[in-house]
């Protein structure tokens, strides 16, 4: 039986927007295909995890207060995490976690929270505390050899700059900055994005991309995933795409 090991970072702190749903979706879709899923959790005070022993590392978004507490904790693993990225362990990073993997986060009062600086981008809070990028969002992504639309919800004050390889092109909503054309950060084994929803719930193609990328790396062969019954997801996507995007643009 194939097995995928997932490390879930700061589950009790980065859990504001139902992002854990991403792991529920991954687990569901893997177990339907007889792939065993092991999810280990790490948070402040736990023993140091062996980052390289995992196939997927996941972290979500949290409240500002908690994010600054955990940033300090995360930084002690800078080298290990860098090595895991080099060895192409899959990273799925949502919202706050996306920001923490960049160079820094500059708060409203000018305070700087240093990031892991694994990627070159950086984030600065919008100077007006009441202004945030909030709302439904649809982006177009090229993933695997396919093009698909990804539907989610964004809620962030931070404006992320310096992205050269975005996750997707914005069709509806804001993106990395107010009224941006691009959203998130992407490498074949890294998806970093502001999309909640959670991200994978309405985007089974992205979920399957994550799963097959992990399997291919681990078992060193390309595997076709068993097709699942995604009728509800397809209907959901159809309903929402009609709502958010004018027909001529679809």
């Amino acid at each position: 039986m194939k097995e995928i090991r997932i490390l879930y970072l700061y589950p009790d702190m980065l859990e504001l927007y139902g992002d854990y749903g991403n792991l529920q979706v991954l687990k569901y879709r893997m177990e339907k295909r007889d792939i065993q899923v092991i999810i280990d959790r790490y948070s402040i005070g736990d023993p140091k995890p062996d980052f390289l022993s995992y196939d997927l590392i996941f972290a979500g978004g949290g409240a500002d207060n908690e994010q600054s507490i955990l940033a300090k904790d995360l930084l002690q693993y800078e080298e290990e995490i860098k090595e895991a990225v080099r060895q192409k362990v899959f990273f799925l990073l949502i919202c706050g976690a996306y920001q923490l993997f960049g160079k820094y986060y500059k708060g409203v009062e000018g305070n700087i929270i240093p990031g892991l600086a694994i990627f070159d981008y950086y984030t600065e809070a919008s100077t007006d505390r009441t202004k945030r990028c909030i709302g439904n969002i649809v982006i177009e992504v090229n993933i695997g050899e396919k093009q698909t639309k990804v539907i989610g919800f964004e809620n962030h004050g931070g404006q992320t700059h310096g992205i050269t390889t975005p996750f997707g092109k914005v069709l509806f909503g804001n993106g990395n900055q107010f009224k941006d054309t691009q959203e998130g950060f992407f490498l074949p084994h890294v998806i970093a994005t502001y999309l909640h929803g959670p991200l994978l719930a309405k985007n089974p193609e992205i979920a399957d991309y994550v799963i097959s990328t992990c399997l291919t790396r681990k078992y060193e062969e390309k595997m076709d995933l068993l097709k699942l019954d995604d009728e509800l997801e397809e209907k959901c996507r159809k309903q929402l795409l009609v709502r958010f995007i004018p027909v001529e643009k679809q």
Partner: peptide, 21 residues
């Protein structure tokens, strides 16, 4: 549909879940 997907993911058989807008 969002709600139906959510409930389905908790492991309930698809044939007992119906989404009706």
């Amino acid at each position: 549909y969002d709600m139906a997907i959510r409930i389905k993911t908790s492991g309930y058989p698809i044939n007992i879940i119906e989404a009706e807008l």
